[in-house]
Design a protein around this nucleic acid. Sequence first.
DNA 1: ACCTGAACACCGTTCAAGT
DNA 2: ACCTGAACACCGTTCAAGT
Lengths: 201, 201
Amino acid sequence: MHTRRRYHHGDLRAALLTRAEETLREKGPAALSLRELARDLGVSHAAPSRHFKDKQALLDALALVGFGRLAEAMAAAQRGTGESFAERLRAGARAYVDFATADAELLDLMYSIKHTPEASEELSAAAQRWTEEMMSLIVDAQRRGEVREGSPERVGIEVFSTLHGYATLAASDSLPPDVCTQDLDELVAYILRGCAPEKSA
Amino acid sequence: MHTRRRYHHGDLRAALLTRAEETLREKGPAALSLRELARDLGVSHAAPSRHFKDKQALLDALALVGFGRLAEAMAAAQRGTGESFAERLRAGARAYVDFATADAELLDLMYSIKHTPEASEELSAAAQRWTEEMMSLIVDAQRRGEVREGSPERVGIEVFSTLHGYATLAASDSLPPDVCTQDLDELVAYILRGCAPEKSA
DNA sequence: ACCTGAACACCGTTCAAGT
DNA sequence: ACCTGAACACCGTTCAAGT
């Protein structure tokens, strides 16, 4: 019975991240401590430092996981829908809001990371990739004549601001409960009006 | 020279809040410690507990200050502008984004406070009052026929989501730098399109 | 009423030493 | 390569005691 565990249980790094995400969701960001994580996993309190030089490094890695999961959810949502901008936007909005309410603390972490130059390059890249997907959705819609012309970056930011604002407000329980997730369709309609092509076609 | 200071410098509670806001802005939320605050103010590390039972209590009070300052800024912005919804929205948007970029960490704090039932009643009330002002702006605009009809709460949330999303993204440097604050007018135009009255008048 | 000083249990980080 | 154990400087919180 020597395969039971080599030194600990195989992949401390991954275990730390999974456990960190759990406690983040269950007990909030304030309760996240390296020492408790180590305790939960049955290793010494100094062990995590082999895998994350810093507590911040762990948080960065956690945010990275978040962006990965989010990108995945968005991609999946896009696969199961039609080609029109309205449909793709609706699917994306649903996926984003679902992610935000299911993983509110993680989303918070993803955006509380100051995107300063010295922040993890991987992380910036992930955030970058994420916004680029947003942009390509807009560019496509412009090509199809379903979104007004002009800088896709500007339009993308407007759309994304609405989505992001709604999702974070929903995630922090700052929305009147009766308005919550049901009428996402209304939000989508509002966004569509905001970026609809000019009438004089 | 006995008036120099009574016991310390008069109003520790206020001093703690002011200093806390400073360090929040200058060194971020992670650097905010009761003990350092006490050190900065030249009192013992146990002194703050007379005024805030908890670190969380201080954070709540800080968030409350934030809502106060924000409401003030918004009111001031409204006073210096015209009566049309477009003008009032533009002024409000400018004030909100300015607040968010000037006091990013504070805004973060204000919305990271879970608005749970047991959260400070004062705080919930402040947040409430703040959204109500938003709503009255919408109701007014509806009366003037400048905003589409329907639940003012729903429209308000749409408008506020866009503003809040934009402001927080700007505050966390998640916006392409070239898009930043200049074209707030474009954002306002987008919002106006989103909540404009139906064409069939 | 307001503050101090000591005490307690907890952190993050580092570093020699073990396997 | 990966982890331990002890050490250090820092926390938040509490509580008797001082003025």
